[in-house]
Every structure is written in C-alpha cells, then in structure tokens.
C-alpha cells in the first residue's frame, strides 16, 4: 500500500478545507452584499439550481 497516496490525499483535503473555510470567513466587500441577481449563485452545488430561474424572471420584468 503506497504511503505517499495517503499523505498526498490528506494534504489535498487539508488544503481544500482550508481554502474553503478561509473563503467563508472573509466577508464580502461593502456594496456587494445584494448585487447578485440570484440567491442560488453562491451555492457551489449546482449551476442549474432552480433558484436561478426565479430571480432571473423577477429581474426581467
């Protein structure tokens, strides 16, 4: 069993979780709180979240 695989995986996961929490902790600059036209855009989970479409429709009319 290759030990380097476990070391490399642990390193990558640590870096990812580190940058994720670091990003969450930094607040958005002022003026940027409400500028996004959709609430679903900040969700990393999906580009085609249904929240996008609702906000867009509200925005168009």
């Amino acid at each position: 069993m290759n030990l380097w695989a476990i070391v490399w995986l642990a390193l990558l996961i640590a870096i990812f979780i580190g940058t994720y929490i670091w990003n969450k902790k930094t607040p958005q600059p002022e003026g940027c709180e409400d500028m996004s036209e959709c609430s679903g855009c900040h969700n990393i989970a999906c580009t085609h979240h249904s929240a996008h479409h609702e906000e867009e429709i509200k925005d168009e009319y």
Binding site: L12, F16, T19, Y20, W22, N23, T26, G31
Partner: peptide, 23 residues
C-alpha cells in the same frame, strides 16, 4: 480538489484585493 481549492482561493483573493472585479 485542486480546481475546487483554486476557485475558493481566487474568490477569497478577489474579495480582499479588488471589490470592483469581484462585483
């Protein structure tokens, strides 16, 4: 994992250094 970390890092970097581009 690299791509996801990169995206998080770039977003945090933009938030701190350049609000106009982040906007």
């Amino acid at each position: 994992l690299v791509i996801a970390s990169l995206v998080q890092f770039v977003e945090m970097f933009l938030k701190k250094t350049s609000p106009e581009i982040y906007k």
